[in-house]
Design a binder for these strands. Structure first.
Length: 276
DNA sequence: ATTGGGACCTGCTCGC
DNA sequence: TGCGAGCAGGTCCCAA
């Protein structure tokens, strides 16, 4: 669920709330969510201070005063909630970082797919992060680079967009939306896009990711996504195609269709989104 | 080399 | 009303 804009929103919240705090204790009831294992993680984390918070792709990076880094992935349903320790327990609360000042960060995840991973030093971190493609909304993500990536494969463009090795942070929602605004059918082979189409898609992708951040991310009908204060996002109010199967296209009124691509739901307007 | 499917888990919705 | 099948935004791993 949480894609680049949602994770970015969470990161910004964490920057305001947890930087400078000391981690006094970590409690958990789902050992698998702590990697490589709870004992190792706790031993090198408890007692340190948080020096900064970052993001790469859909990963949250929490830099600690001893040079180690906590990497958090929320997968489909994970939430990070910043709470006073006396606040009532949250749903699916499985890992809690307890800070000084009677506050804590609660990692809640109904499916326990998410994880907190201990990374020892910058070297291990850069090797982990090097697996990802360029980061959108940064200078490294140029139109030239984007076109180069698209030209290297014949997979459907929708599948290429959500592959983290190609472009970091784009998931199902934003890939569907970007393709709609670019007027491109999701099944078009990536290396068959015209220069014009690739250019439009580059612009659409950047625009939709910025818009997602502006609206604080998207909280779908399952209500899964929250920012760290527990609030829902507002980008879902601006979905053009995602989760709108059978509803009218915002541009032409044609009914939005749904197919399956890359193993997941893919939504598009059969009239506005063309193959060439 | 790609790509499709299942696994990881749990809860919700839909159709019979 | 009850029940099982199918589905869910991410990623990894394996087999074809």
């Amino acid at each position: 669920m949480p894609e680049l804009p949602e994770v970015e929103t969470i990161k910004r919240g964490l920057q305001k709330r947890i930087v400078g705090r000391k981690i006094k204790e970590i409690v958990y009831d789902a050992p698998k969510m702590l990697q490589p294992n709870p004992k190792t993680l706790l031993a090198s984390v408890v007692g340190t201070k948080i020096v900064k918070v970052g993001r790469r792709a859909k990963l949250i990076l929490i830099y600690l005063s001893n040079g180690n880094i906590l990497v958090i992935h929320l997968k489909l349903m994970g939430r990070l909630l910043f709470r006073n320790k006396r606040a009532p327990e949250d749903d699916w609360q499985h890992v809690v970082l307890k800070f000084d000042g009677d506050v804590e960060l609660r990692f809640c995840d109904m499916r326990k797919f998410g994880f907190v991973r201990l990374i020892v030093g910058e070297k291990e971190l850069s090797s982990l992060l090097s697996e990802f493609g360029p980061e959108p909304l940064t200078p490294e993500f140029t139109e030239g680079k984007f076109r180069d990536i698209l030209s290297k494969t014949s997979r459907p463009i929708k599948v290429v967009l959500i592959d983290q090795k190609n472009i970091a942070g784009v998931g199902n929602i934003y890939a569907n939306e970007a393709l709609f605004w670019a007027g491109i059918h999701p099944e078009v082979k990536s290396n068959r896009l015209s220069g014009e189409q690739a250019s439009r898609l580059y612009e659409a992708l950047n625009k939709i990711l910025k818009k997602g951040i502006k609206y604080g991310g998207a909280t779908g009908s399952d209500q899964a996504y929250r920012n760290i204060e527990g609030e829902v996002g507002r980008f879902q109010e601006h979905f053009a195609v995602y989760a709108r199967m059978g509803e009218e296209c915002v541009k032409c009124g044609t009914k939005i269709e749904r197919i399956k691509l890359g193993g997941r739901g893919t939504f598009f307007c059969p009239r506005c989104q063309v193959t060439r």
